[in-house]
Computed example of a mutant assay.
Amino acid sequence: MLPGAKPDWDYVTLDPVRGFLFIGRRADGVTVWDVRSNRVVRTIEKSEEAGAVILVPEFDRGYTANEDGSTTIFRLSTLATIDRVKFGDDSDSGFFDPVTKQIAFTMGDSHKIAFVDAKTGRPAGDLSIDSKKLDGTAPDGEGNLFMALRDRNAVLKIDVKSHAVVARWNTDGCEQPTGIAYDRGGKRIFVGCRGTKPVLAVMDATSGKVISTHEIGRGNDGVVYDSEARRVYTSNGVDANLVIYDQLDADTYVLSEATTTRPYARTMALDPKTKKVYLVTAEGTADPVMKINKAVAPFYPNRYYPDTFTVLTFAPHE
């Protein structure tokens, strides 16, 4: 359990080499948690309002996505902050493209994506998007990003080099697409869908066609694909479960297990070597005096209790 007067969070990112879990805790900044010794290593300086962390080991850099439209750049090897740089007016998350070496920062309130050079930290351009809910994003390894538009029931294919949308596909049978992962070998996009019928949608990355859908829990915010194990993980905060599917081939999926987690543990990180899954959550309440996000759940917490923030670890069966 981690201390904090007003727990809040969004995404988690794992550095599997060092065993560090980077947790975007918004007002509390980025907490670095050692998953091997189960202790806090440090808080990244000048990372207040951070909701996500993007790691770029080849440049020994880490970048945060801060709500005020800035990024805190730090050295991955020492965790020392280098600078806090403004690139826009808001930011939700960020995603690294390994081909162009650019980071795409999603800016829902501004209806656009800001691109930043991951080596220098300098702005590289932007792209306007007709959406306020720019959600999960995954690189295809060929210079493109697949991005979910939760309020448009669509997935975009974005050419990062040209900063242009090259395809837009409707997510038929998938309402409120949120988390995304990609299978490069099978050319399949995995999309977590939050709608009235929560499902994992499997899309053809060439045509954009939805091949199949598979039941998951409510409140999805994370999808991870393990190419080695050929397994798809979905973290679902409202139903408090981790629903996992085995991939038999590109178009065939069977339920592996549905493990109970904790309420509102909605984002996750997978260690590709140990196969452990890390999630975070806190105890909260839906205070009727404050606005409740009923689009997620009728009693979705809008206030969390002090000193209840928790890191959860799930290991595979022996």
Rank of each mutant, 00 (worst) to 15 (best):
Asn293Ala: 14
Phe146Pro: 02
Lys132His: 15
Lys294Thr: 11
Gly141Tyr: 03
Gly24His: 07
Ser110Ile: 10
Glu58Trp: 09
Ala258Asp: 15
Ala27Arg: 14
Val199Glu: 07
Pro7Leu: 10
Gly195Thr: 10
Tyr300Trp: 08
Gly192Val: 05
Lys197Gln: 07
Leu76Ser: 08
Thr137Ser: 08
Pro177Ala: 06
Thr81His: 09
Gly222Phe: 04
Ala104Tyr: 13
Thr260Lys: 15
Val202Leu: 03
Arg61Gly: 07
Val224Pro: 00
Ala52Phe: 02
Asn293His: 13
Met268Trp: 10
Glu283Gly: 01
Ile54Ser: 10
Pro98Val: 04
Val223Leu: 00
Pro16Asn: 05
Ile23Asp: 05
Asp10Pro: 00
Ser110His: 05
Thr267Tyr: 10
Gly125Val: 12
Asp34Pro: 00
Arg168Val: 01
Ala5Val: 12
Glu175Met: 09
Val277Tyr: 06
Val40Cys: 10
Val17Gln: 14
Leu21Gly: 05
Tyr233Ile: 06
Thr313Trp: 11
Lys112Leu: 14
Asn170Phe: 01
Pro306Ile: 08
Leu21Cys: 14
Gln247His: 08
Phe309Ser: 03
Phe314Tyr: 15
Glu318Pro: 10
Leu156Phe: 06
Asp28Glu: 13
Asp140Tyr: 05
Glu45Met: 12
Thr213Arg: 11
Ala295Arg: 15
Met107Lys: 09
Asp172Ser: 09
Thr72Gln: 09
Thr213Cys: 02
Glu318Asn: 11
Asp60Tyr: 08
Tyr63Asn: 07
Val155Leu: 14
Gly51Ser: 13
Asp251His: 14
Val166Trp: 01
Val56Tyr: 02
Ile180Met: 02
Phe190Gln: 05
Thr313Lys: 15
Thr78Val: 04
Tyr253Asn: 08
Val53Asp: 05
Arg122Gly: 00
Thr43Leu: 03
Met1Ser: 12
Thr206Pro: 00
Pro198Phe: 14
Pro57Ile: 11
Pro98Leu: 05
Asp130Glu: 15
Ser70Val: 12
Thr171Val: 11
Lys101Glu: 09
Phe59Lys: 09
Ile158Trp: 04
Ala167Ser: 07
Ala250His: 09
Pro7Tyr: 13
Val243Gly: 00
Gly24Ser: 01
Tyr253Ile: 06
Val280Asn: 08
Thr171Cys: 03
Ala167His: 04
Thr171His: 05
Phe105His: 14
Tyr264Lys: 13
Thr261Ala: 10
Val254Gly: 02
Asn220His: 13
Gly88Ala: 15
Arg150Asp: 11
Leu145Met: 09
Asn144Leu: 02
Arg188Tyr: 03
Thr171Glu: 06
Phe74Asn: 09
Pro16Cys: 07
Pro3Asp: 11
Thr178Leu: 08
Pro298Arg: 02
Leu2Cys: 11
Thr78Arg: 08
Thr81Glu: 11
Asp287Ile: 10
Asp159Ile: 09
Ser110Phe: 02
Ser110Leu: 00
Val280Gly: 05
Pro139Ala: 04
Thr171Pro: 01
Glu49Leu: 14
